[in-house]
Each structure stands twice: as structure tokens, then as C-alpha cells.
């Protein structure tokens, strides 16, 4: 059992996500940075889909009800056990009554706490992930609150020795400026040539609204090619006839402030999607803070698939070493 003394800003239960229901309009939710989440589970010997806590910006204060192996991965929100700093990206052990707390965020935005066995909450549509917008999954469909008591599950498959670490060269470093790779399309033809260039050449600033649903970016206004809007499309030039939105797709309502749709976002609609963040970089997108800078870099589909393969190989390498 884990008791929530203080909840942090937005701490939610997440796993790999509610996969396979996109066509009925259900976004997957799930860990925003799946690389860090997955390494967290590996370090405590959990099955791949065990639920962890996703901590955003401000850490919670948690008290453990029994001896347990844990790991803390992702953005650097420096963790402390009973007030003493402890390592991230390492298998740790807590004793009954130990308290985990965190210092102010140093780099990145989201930190994962994995516990041996996973966080046990009811499975809703194949997943324990919290989808706060409609209040399903996770702990009572919401972010953690003071006084909550979390049960620990049984999704444990391997005993990992305390002190196990991963190769330091495989630990991601999160800066304050970010290059995020995108595949241009599906509706990029709607932008003027000049605005296509502006989109890729600008340094965008992430706004305070950025959350699990989407990241909004401030910068120059983009212009769409003038046309008579087709049947079924809205009247604004940024509108198209409805389409499915890929996860990571970028829309620019009225040409103002591009929004990258993320894991809790609407699954389709009538805005032109001008590019899509490649799946390998969604993890890094999750570690971008409000007020940080983003540059979108165009890559080919082959490069995107290559990046995904590299990420999978890295995780395989980490799993083998543990």
C-alpha cells in the first residue's frame, strides 16, 4: 500500500495505454514518455504493461506501507527518501514507513515512479491508464489527491537486485530547447509555401496550457492557401473535411499557435494537420516544459521508422542488461 501525503500537481496512474479503441473516438492515454516508463518497469522486474505513476512538474509526497523495490525514471525531479537524495534510473528499495518526496524540477517535465508489481487499479477497456477528461481508468478516473491509498499489484516477473543501473549513455538528457522530428502532411498542402518554411524554420515557445491532451506553441502566424471551402469543411481556411487525427499530429486553428495532439486528445475533426511528430519523439515531447523552445525538423517516413526501430533496440539492450 502507498499512501498519498501530498499529491503533487498532476500525478496519474498510467500504463502502455488503452490501445485499439481509436476508431470509436477513445484516445489511448498511457505514459507520455514511454521510454522512461518502460525502463522504470524493467528496473523493478515488472511486466511491460504494469501501471506506474506519472508525475508532472511537481512531485508528490508518498509513504510506503511495506518493503518494496521501486525506480524513478524520466525528467529530473530529484527524488528523496526520508529526506535523503536518491538516484534516478536505478533499482531502489524502500522499507515500511519510508517517505518519498521530490525537489523542484531540474530538467524535463515528467517523472515515472515504478513499483514492484505495478500500481493496482481496476482495468477499464484493457488499460489502467487514467483519462481525466472523462474520468475513467487510473485511481477513480482522476489525478491523485491527498489521503488516497494505492494498492500494489502482482505484475512482477523478475527479481532485480537493488542498485541495478542502466548504461549512462542510454539515459536521455533533457535540454530547454528541443528539436522534434516530424513527417510533413497529411494536409500540409493547405499551407502557403512561405508558411510551410516558417513552420520548419521558427523557434516555437510552448505555452502554459501544454498538457497530456496537447502542446500549444506560440510564434508567427501561418497562412493557408485561399480557396472555396469544400462541402463539409468549416469556413475557416484552416478547416478541412473531417479526418482522423494521428497521435502527434499538428493542427493550427486559424493559423495561430500550432497544437501537437498527444495521448489524451480528440481522435478526429476538421482542422488541417500540417505535420505529425514521429512516434520516437513523442517521448521527448512529453519532457518539454511550458516556456521552453521547440524546433520542428522534417524527416522522411523511412527515417521515422528507423528512429522507432532504434528506440526499440535501445530498450531491448536495456532489458538484456537487466
Amino acid at each position: 500500500m502507498i499512501k498519498v501525503i501530498k499529491p503533487g500537481l498532476q500525478t496519474t496512474v498510467q500504463d502502455q495505454g488503452r490501445i485499439g479503441l481509436y476508431e470509436i473516438g477513445m484516445p489511448p492515454s498511457g505514459a507520455m514518455d514511454k521510454f522512461s516508463y518502460t525502463v522504470g518497469n524493467l528496473l523493478v522486474g515488472n511486466q511491460r504493461n504494469a501501471a506506474a505513476l506519472e508525475i508532472t512538474y511537481l512531485g508528490p509526497v508518498l509513504q510506503f506501507g511495506r518493503k518494496l523495490r521501486i525506480s524513478i525514471t524520466g525528467g529530473n525531479i530529484p527524488p528523496k527518501i526520508n529526506g535523503q537524495p536518491v538516484a534516478m534510473w536505478e533499482t531502489l528499495e524502500v522499507q515500511e514507513g519510508d517517505t518519498l518526496s521530490f525537489d523542484f524540477v531540474q530538467s524535463g517535465a515528467r517523472t515515472y515512479l515504478a513499483v514492484e508489481g505495478g500500481i493496482d487499479v481496476p482495468v477499464v477497456m484493457n488499460s489502467r491508464s487514467t483519462y481525466t477528461l472523462i474520468g475513467i481508468g487510473g485511481f477513480q478516473g482522476r489525478a491523485l489527491a491527498e489521503g488516497d491509498e494505492l494498492a500494489v499489484g502482482d505484475m512482477h516477473e523478475k527479481k532485480v537486485p537493488v542498485g541495478t543501473r542502466i548504461d549512462p549513455s542510454l539515459i536521455p538528457v533533457f535540454q530547454k530547447t528541443h528539436e522534434i522530428r516530424v513527417v510533413v502532411g497529411l494536409c500540409s498542402y493547405r499551407l502557403t509555401e512561405e508558411s510551410k518554411a516558417v513552420f520548419l524554420e521558427s523557434e516555437w515557445t510552448v505555452t502554459p496550457e501544454a498538457n497530456r491532451i496537447g502542446y500549444r506553441h506560440k510564434g508567427e502566424r501561418l497562412k493557408f492557401v485561399e480557396r472555396q471551402q469544400p462541402f463539409g469543411a468549416g469556413s475557416n481556411p484552416s478547416n478541412v473535411t473531417d479526418l482522423g487525427y494521428p497521435i502527434g499530429s499538428i493542427q493550427v486553428p486559424d493559423g495561430v499557435e500550432p497544437i501537437v495532439l498527444l495521448h489524451d486528445a480528440v481522435t478526429g475533426g476538421g482542422y488541417a494537420t500540417i505535420a505529425t511528430v514521429i512516434s520516437a519523439d513523442l517521448n521527448r515531447m512529453a519532457q518539454i516544459k511550458t516556456n521552453e523552445k521547440v524546433k520542428f525538423v522534417s524527416v522522411t517516413l523511412e527515417e521515422a521508422i528507423g528512429a522507432r526501430r532504434n528506440l526499440r533496440d535501445q530498450l531491448m539492450k536495456i532489458a538484456d542488461a537487466i
Binding site: 512538474y57 511537481l58 523542484f104 524540477v105 502554459p208 511550458t290
Partner: peptide, 9 residues
């Protein structure tokens, strides 16, 4: 007094 998180004050 420091801000523990990024955002609008």
C-alpha cells in the same frame, strides 16, 4: 520564495 513549477504567475 521560488516558483516550484513553470507557468503564469
Amino acid at each position: 520564495i521560488l516558483s516550484p513549477l513553470p507557468g503564469v504567475f
